[in-house]
Simulated assay, not measured.
Amino acid sequence: MKLSIISDQVSQNLEEALKIIVKEGYEYVELHNVFGHSIETCTKEEVEIIKHLLNRYHVKVSNIASTLFFLCPLYQGDEVSLFNPGFYSIQGDLEYHLKVLENACWIANELDCPKIRIFPFRWPDNRKGPYGTKLDFEKIIENIKKALDISKKHHVTLMLENCPYSHLPKGKMTLQVVQEINDPYLKLLWDPANSYRAIRENVPKEYMDWSLEEELLHLYPYIGHIHLKNYHYVSGLVKPFVHVPLLNGNIDYKTLVKSIQETCDCILSLEPEVDKKGTLLSMQCLKSLCSV
């Protein structure tokens, strides 16, 4: 099983991140925050710097972790905002995101990684859930088909991530989109922790019935990339899902990673969202799990 980590989880400085990633025995990196902005808006000059650093440290790119369609209103009148100022993201309407997708496809091919993460549209601040209605699915599918018209010209595969801040936080929901579109250039970016921490009030009941093991059982033929992180649920907090190192939370990754190894042929990429000490611990723990 090939292992990766999002570079800015290690350091906001790409070269510093690569030094640590190589030292920890990882051969792949996923790119999101670079040079103070999100990867999909990189210039030709910045891409040349990235290529130079990747070659220097002999690291390959596992995924282009763009923010396409995250801060993009699904409907006219929707107001969307950033939940974390440290999560760099582009913002604009669908037309702008599709325009940036063209640049992202060029970047993906330049970095020899024709895979781009996309989101199922941020849920709005000014409209209450539940989200993931029949109309939401129709609109999301319509928009993703427009994105595929662009990505397929560049032979780039789109990776649809289930995100707790989006209309489709559960893997069962993103699976429905991928199955309905049925295009080899659209795959799932499965994040089991995102499914775990989905806000119940935002999700229709029919999408709340699968455990993470059941999600994997249904999703694995469509998975192209996997993100790993963990949470510890603390009742009473305003934000009760607390980020913790990989093996310190409520998700049983010892069991789940074993099941992933038995079913999936894709790269496991860490997105630990913890401090540097916890990130290094997560990297070491994932290596240990995958070497058993």
Rank of each mutant, 00 (worst) to 15 (best):
I260Q: 05
L74C: 08
Y57E: 09
T43D: 14
E138N: 14
K2P: 04
E215M: 03
L168R: 06
W210M: 12
C285D: 15
I141Y: 02
N202A: 08
N143Y: 07
Y88F: 14
V22W: 05
R200V: 07
N103W: 03
G92W: 00
P169C: 07
K153L: 12
E24A: 07
L53Y: 10
C266E: 14
E262W: 00
M173S: 08
A198C: 11
L281I: 01
C113H: 10
P164D: 09
S291D: 13
K23R: 14
S11R: 10
I50G: 12
D252F: 02
K2I: 00
E206G: 00
A108G: 08
V242Y: 01
V100R: 05
W106K: 15
L54P: 06
H32W: 01
S235A: 14
C264N: 11
K128H: 09
Y253K: 00
S282T: 09
L212V: 10
L111P: 00
G92Y: 00
L188P: 13
R127I: 12
H32Y: 05
H227A: 08
G132Q: 00
E206Y: 00
I107N: 07
W106H: 10
E206S: 02
E15D: 07
I199W: 08
H32M: 13
E214L: 04
I49D: 15
P240M: 08
E16S: 12
A198V: 10
L160V: 00
T255S: 14
V178N: 03
E142Y: 07
V100E: 15
E40M: 04
T41P: 08
P130G: 12
